[in-house]
Design a binder for these strands. Structure first.
Length: 489
RNA sequence: CGGGAUGUAGCGCAGUCCGGUAGCGCGCCUCGUUCGGGACGAGGAGGUCGCAGGUUCAAAUCCUGUCAUCCCGACCA
């Protein structure tokens, strides 16, 4: 077989790379750490974008666009923020190339007066702009989102999960009151949770980040964390309450109803193409990609089967009628009537690309007025009546969607455990990985010690902590409630 | 950025130790037969062996450098 996917149990990383390659999602680019997103991968991203964008609009946001380049000086305005991003910035220093005997070189004459940073995130340039937009409480809130690419100079990259350039959306909002900004942060976290669970069929834990995992410049970072099949957690989205940090750094003030001048309150929130990595590692199997119907670029593929010209015309006519019927029913359906590939080849191809449902139609089906219907998630097949497909298929797609979610939820639940002692914690990590609830004394030192010794980090602190006191598994000090640990991507 | 591994045709690999002018499978092109789970036969195209130097009569093979990818660490969405 030319298309070989490494088994998950044998080498999970290689399996992941095989899926990305065989499902034609992306490939490496000539530039280190960057990727070419291929049509299959981009179609998936477009579906995610479309859905998220609708959800952002429904919650009152508008899209805008801010520049790729940020003056270097902007980055130094918020102390924590600089510290967080300084180590991973691409810097533009010159504006011109010239020919020399060594080929094309940078023209030393073209050195920029002020060097430009390629945005690693846009808080600085946006808050510099918001200063001009805000004078009065009447100018608030500002509820904007932008779809953009950003660059972070990473040491170690993996397709979709961590690339130097990635696509994302970043929401940036400005509010008159702290409460309003806090509400916004939680509202967007909820949008992410619902997108992950209802569309990606990827169950997530929501929670707060500990101080050391917090976004540089944020007062609080909220996140959604998903558990992958190999027992490692993936931070899939973040929503930050920025307090007045950026307003103070960029001097964004407004005159309130009471006549007093105040600093604006801020949030920012984002998800990226990393979600595609999460999607792959949540549902796919050793046969290839498995996609949830709500996001699959093609939800149903129809594969015709024939032996001769006479059969071909009958089968094509039959298949085409089904195609039109499903299309009219609003289903993303593809009629794979290419003559140059055999049915068996098409079956395998659509399987590896993760198309949720496959309909095979041959002469026998035309005669019996049936079709063969196969599910990608369960690999099961059934013969069903041709009549009523336009009603049955949408139902089945929803069944597949919820079955995928349920299976992932069950897996995640099995991968979520608690540990009372540090020994037990380490054993669980090494044996199974997964999420582990454990008591922690709340100090950065202990968190750091656990990270150094086990490579596990605190993924979330509970949003609404319930009283469940215990002793820190490392220091034995008092802990008000357990927190969620895991090794992560 | 440190430790390990690997770069040979679109993809997967052999050949490298022991230097002699490049091969296999899949894919691709043409024709015919095929078509209900990756068809078969016949013919054919395709490679400055990652790149740059060096040693040599001769380098995929030896030496130096460099770039990229993968795995493991440190950093991060």
């Amino acid at each position: 077989m030319a298309k070989k996917i490494t088994e998950r149990t044998k080498d999970y990383s290689q399996w992941y790379l095989d899926i990305v390659r065989e499902a034609q999602l992306a490939s490496h680019s000539p530039v280190r750490g960057c990727m070419v997103i291929k049509p299959n991968g981009f179609a998936l991203w477009e579906n995610m974008q479309r859905q998220l964008d609708d959800m952002f609009k429904e919650t009152g946001h508008q899209n805008a666009y801010f520049p790729l380049f940020i003056p270097k000086s902007f980055l130094s305005k918020e102390a924590q923020h600089v510290e967080g991003f300084a180590k991973e910035c691409a810097v533009v220093t010159h504006s011109r190339l010239i020919n020399s005997e060594d080929g094309v070189i940078v023209d030393p004459e073209s050195k920029l007066e002020e060097e430009l940073i390629v945005r690693p995130t846009s808080e600085t340039i946006i808050w510099d702009t918001y200063r001009d937009w805000v004078q009065s409480y009447r100018d608030l809130p500002i509820l904007l989102n932008q779809w953009a690419n950003v660059v972070r100079w990473e040491m170690r990259t993996r397709l979709f999960l961590r690339t130097m350039e990635f696509l994302w959306q970043e929401g940036h909002t400005a509010h008159a009151t702290e409460q309003e900004a806090r509400d916004e942060t939680v509202r967007m976290l909820e949008v992410y949770r619902s997108f992950a669970e209802d569309y990606m069929a990827m169950p997530v834990h929501t929670g707060l980040k500990s101080e050391s995992e917090r976004f540089a410049g944020a007062v609080e970072t909220y996140c959604i964390e998903a558990m992958m099949q190999d027992g490692k957690a993936l931070q899939a989205g973040t929503s930050h309450f920025l307090g007045q940090n950026f307003a103070k750094a960029f001097d964004v003030r407004f005159q309130d109803k009471d006549g007093k001048e105040k600093y604006v309150w801020a949030t920012s929130w984002g998800v990226s193409t990393r979600l595609i990595g999460g999607l792959i590692m949540t549902h796919s199997d050793d046969n290839g990609l498995v996609l949830p119907p709500r996001l699959a670029p093609t939800q149903v593929v129809i594969v015709p089967i024939w032996r001769n010209d006479e059969e071909q015309s009958r089968v094509l006519e039959y298949g085409n009628a089904i195609y039109n019927e499903l299309k009219d029913a609003g289903i993303r359906v593809k009629f794979d009537d290419r003559d140059q590939y055999k049915p068996g080849w098409k079956f395998s191809q659509h399987e590896v690309e993760g198309t949720p449902l496959r309909i095979a139609v041959g002469p026998r089906d035309v005669t019996n007025n049936k079709v063969e219907l196969a599910r990608r998630d369960t690999l099961s097949k059934e013969i069903v009546d041709r009549e009523g497909l336009d009603r049955y298929i949408p139902e089945l797609l929803e069944t597949v969607q919820s079955d995928l979610y349920r299976a992932a939820q069950k897996r995640t639940a099995n991968q979520t455990r608690s540990a009372d002692t540090y020994e037990e914690f380490k054993n669980l990590l090494d044996r199974e990985g997964g999420f582990i609830y454990a008591h922690w004394d709340g100090t950065v030192e202990t968190e750091e010690k656990i990270k150094n010794e086990t490579r596990a980090t605190i993924r979330t602190l509970p949003l609404k902590p319930e009283k469940n006191p215990g002793k820190c598994m490392v220091t034995g000090k008092e802990s008000p409630y357990p927190v969620l640990f895991a090794r992560s991507y």
